[in-house]
Design a binder for these strands. Structure first.
Lengths: 155, 155
DNA sequence: CCGTGACTTAAAGCCGGCTTGAAGTCAAGC
DNA sequence: GCTTGACTTCAAGCCGGCTTTAAGTCACGG
């Protein structure tokens, strides 16, 4: 049997995780992953880092920032495989998050459908246009770029 | 005749639209809105711009970039109130967009639920872990969850 | 006619999540 | 031992969607 490589170089971790080496270094700078060093100063990753990287990418898909991913990550064990319970707790909070976003989008859809009926965007009378209602603006896509709460999350 | 102010200053448009004056200037620089000028060079907006600004914000909520909003906008009449048909065509494309996004999130949820069952993130076997997948970016392609299995390796 | 506040411009800055580049070092195969 | 490619660090750049700043001008009430 071929021996499993115990430690991965950054290139190997990059290949195996699908995450660019530059991104991995960036993650390390944020404390998302860690590495040992060779005598010469090169990074060597434990296989557990594969899981950590996967976790981070999954968190991003779920809509978390890297900072939030770091917090989630801190709730999982470092070097052992997370138990079902570990993962359960984390994934449930992600699912809550995804559900919230879906609900926001559904509300938006209803409003758009309403607008089809009224042919509006006539400001004052239109639900879509409602400057006071910031909740409506915290929905889709680059909501963090819409100006107000960049550090997000005031639920 | 008209009892309403015919032209709005940028401050008035800002107040009425809930969009910062700096953002309005930025929108103008992108060709999203237009303004006439006083002899002294100050902007004066037609009331139709209120609708245009509302449209842009709505487009953002629907997940469009400003560039995409500009394209949508080009499908609406400039100075007259859009007809039901005008608005219908546009809003339907937005709704499609929102639907796609919702579908993505539903897929993610299913995967997360699956992971609760399997306690995974064990890479090769987990749908969440899908290398080659540049998903987390704002690019938001449906490529997220579709996936080839990760490169065949032991995990 | 003047003071004041609202306006003007161009350029720079900010945020998150990276990528790219420059200049240099390490590890491994021949 | 040498070559080559993978690695190292630090700094700067990029994207989108703005905001902020600086320095200066306009418009209106008194």
């Amino acid at each position: 049997m071929s021996a499993l490589p115990v430690r991965l170089t950054i290139g190997e971790l990059s290949d195996r995780s699908g995450v660019a080496a530059s991104a991995l270094r960036y993650y390390e700078s944020l404390g998302l992953i860690t590495a040992e060093r060779t005598a010469g100063g090169q990074r060597r990753y434990s296989r557990a880092m594969l899981r950590r990287v996967a976790f981070v990418r999954a968190a991003q898909i779920a809509g978390l920032s890297l900072e939030e991913a770091r917090e989630s990550l801190s709730r999982l064990p470092d070097e052992r495989t997370p138990t079902k319970a570990d993962w359960n707790a984390v994934s449930r909070s992600w699912i809550r998050r995804v559900d919230e976003r879906i609900a926001e989008l559904e509300r938006l859809k209803d409003t758009l459908n309403g607008c089809v009926g009224c042919g509006c965007l006539s400001l004052r009378t239109c639900n879509l246009y409602n400057p006071g209602d910031t909740a409506a603006g915290r929905g889709a896509g680059p909501r963090w770029m819409l100006g107000d709460p960049p550090p997000a999350r005031q639920s």
